[in-house]
């Protein structure tokens, strides 16, 4: 079953990605981005912290189609990585010596990067999948967002690489 264990060709991936977005638009009749799902999880996390501090009973997270989609991504990625032998527990994103340096880079790059990515997405009004869906529907805002974010990401990544501040896994 090479289709389950091997990599897929770029044209299969690209066709599936656009087909999946079209199918989401048809089935859900809603914007495809997972922005509302992430907002819901963030609110749930905040409430859970409050409930834990006040020793109250913790309720289950809200489940609607967007949080269900995010849960499905977790299951799908777990299944795909197990089938292709890519499932590995990793605590650090870099493979360099020195546990302090590795820990600092993992926390700093991960946390600051995640914060900035979501901050920008919130300003632009949708998640990355939503922006991609918007670009396929020729939305001007999505095109401005995607072009600027890719251009800046390439520029900053090259600058960091040149300064040896960034590295691969």
């Amino acid at each position: 079953m090479r289709i389950l264990t091997g990599k897929w060709s770029f044209y299969i991936n690209g066709a599936f990605l656009s087909g999946m977005i079209a199918l989401c638009l048809y089935l859900f009749q809603d914007t495809v981005g997972m922005n509302d799902g992430m907002i819901m999880i963030s609110e749930y996390a905040g409430k859970t912290v409050e409930q834990t501090a006040e020793h109250k009973e913790i309720k289950l997270p809200p489940l609607d189609w967007q949080t269900g989609f995010l849960g499905g991504i977790f299951i799908g990625a777990l299944a795909a990585s197990l089938m292709s032998g890519n499932w590995k527990i990793r605590f650090f994103q870099e493979k360099e010596s020195g546990i302090v340096s590795r820990s600092l880079k993992t926390v700093l790059f991960g946390f600051a990067g995640g914060f900035l990515v979501m901050l920008g997405l919130q300003l632009a009004g949708d998640s990355f999948l939503g922006q991609w869906s918007g670009a396929l529907q020729l939305s001007g805002g999505s095109w401005i967002f995607l072009v600027s974010s890719f251009a800046v990401a390439c520029g900053v990544a090259i600058l960091l690489e040149q300064r040896n501040a960034s590295g691969g896994e």
Binding site: T31, F109, L123, V156
Partner: peptide
């Protein structure tokens, strides 16, 4: 069509901030 309303400056500034974050963590929510 299902597209959220876009604003030029919000999309541009959001894209620039997200781009910096992407270069650091190389990940988007999904």
């Amino acid at each position: 069509p299902h597209v959220r309303p876009g604003f030029f400056w919000a999309s541009l500034i959001g894209g620039i901030i997200s781009g910096v974050g992407l270069a650091l963590c190389c990940r988007v929510p999904i």
